[in-house]
Amino acid sequence: MDIEIELIRKLETLALLKLSEEEENNIINDIKKILDFFNTIQKAQLSDVEPLFHPIKSTHLRPDEVKNGLTKEEALANASSVEGGYIRGPRTGE
């Protein structure tokens, strides 16, 4: 599969990243390598094997009982910017 610069730019937009031209070129090569691995995997004969999406067969559910969580100080400890007990994030309007 050909990896074009347009694809990289689209991924940048989706991931909210801005790469330099050099980084973009490096990424093109990295993604080519990654896809080559997958191309190898794709060659395996699996037509008679059921798809597996998770190694664990079935999970369990949780009873609907309240437990204490974090304190406000713990909750806000990792936020880079806080205002009046709120976490401050970027603007969302265009």
């Binding site: 949780r62 309240v66 437990k67 969580g69 974090l70 406000k72 909750a75």
Partner: peptide, 28 residues
């Protein structure tokens, strides 16, 4: 009307609480 959130045991009653006081590592 659930007692807790969907994926963690924090209360699903979040009204009239100080901001960021009804949280745990999962819902943060």
């Amino acid at each position: 009307t659930l007692n807790t959130k969907l994926f963690c045991s924090c209360s699903s009653n979040y009204e009239d609480k100080e901001p960021n006081t009804n949280v745990c590592p999962v819902c943060l």
